[in-house]
């Protein structure tokens, strides 16, 4: 066999698999989004974007991503730095911190629902401490801020670890000598973080942020569990069009809009965190 063909033969199964189960459905979805049974049309996109719920769910999705991702970035950087500095018990702490990764997002939503609902842990704790007389419903249409905060907390709790794992691996790759040089040449711990860790962590930050931002635009189950219809998001609308309104074309259109947003933000992140030409990290 021609050895030059070997690499292509080896990647063939994966390529076929992806074509069959990703590319082909993707083409179908695109077809569905851009047609109304008789030819090319933008009607589906006009229908979904003109619906009164679209701007709200778009705004909510962005707002949530904007509130959650920076906090997760800061938290995961802090946690990664702390974990790296640990001499003993480092792996144990990492395992504990990454437990939420093993829990499905719906389960995560339900856990936080159990805390915030009227008969939940928070109410019984505050009642027990005598802070409130009777249980309150935190997650009602009367307290949209509380709903938002609950969703934020659940998202932060659930999905910070994925960034943490990537950043811990990234920090581990930075040679210790750079920090020693930084220390000798007068950089304070904070300056070492800003001038050495952050720039040298750029490739890992890229990966972590891209992954996290894409997931943030796809947020669904946690929101569904905690906010239900009180806090519409784009993915929830996709679900509603597909399974409640049985409008496959509209669902496909929203899915493509989410994809476009994800691609845009991926490009922005890659651009913002690019390594300067010639620099090797």
């Amino acid at each position: 066999m021609n050895p030059r063909l070997l690499p292509y033969i080896l990647i063939l199964p994966v390529t076929l698999f992806l074509c069959l189960f990703f590319l082909y459905p993707f083409v179908l979805v695109a077809q569905q989004a851009f047609s109304n049974g008789s030819g090319f049309t933008l009607t589906n996109f006009r229908d979904v974007t003109e619906h009164w719920k679209f701007p709200i769910s778009l705004k909510n999705t962005f707002l949530l991503a904007l509130a959650v991702v920076p906090i997760q970035l800061a938290l995961s950087l802090l946690m990664a730095t702390m974990v790296t500095k640990m001499k003993k018990g480092r792996d144990l702490i990492l395992y504990i911190w990454t437990i939420p990764l093993g829990i499905s997002d719906l389960a995560a939503g339900i856990i936080w629902l159990a805390i915030f609902e009227q008969s939940g842990f928070l109410n019984s704790m505050m009642g027990g401490l005598g802070l409130i007389d009777s249980p309150t419903n935190f997650l009602s249409y009367q307290s949209p801020v509380m709903v938002f905060v609950a969703i934020m907390l659940a998202e932060i709790w659930r999905a910070t670890a994925i960034m943490l794992v990537i950043l811990v691996a990234g920090i581990g790759l930075i040679p210790k000598e750079y920090y020693e040089a930084g220390e000798v040449f007068g950089a304070t711990p904070w300056q070492r973080f800003l001038k050495i860790t952050l720039p040298m962590l750029r490739p890992s930050l890229q990966t972590a942020l891209v992954l996290r931002v894409i997931l943030a635009f796809e947020v669904f189950a946690v929101v569904q569990a905690l906010g239900g219809t009180l806090f519409p998001v784009l993915m929830g609308e996709t679900y509603a069009y597909q399974f409640e309104l049985l409008n496959g074309g509209a669902a496909a259109a929203i899915a493509l809009i989410i994809l476009a947003i994800s691609i845009t933000f991926t490009l922005i992140i890659m651009r913002a965190l690019r390594v300067p030409k010639g620099a090797t990290i």
Binding site: P175, E177, A181, V184, P199, R202, V275, A279, T280, I281
Partner: peptide, 15 residues
């Protein structure tokens, strides 16, 4: 009041 030259140079690759 010291400065140091390291064995593996420790020249920052991003600067």
């Amino acid at each position: 009041g010291i400065a140091m030259v390291f064995q593996n140079y420790a020249v920052f690759p991003h600067l």
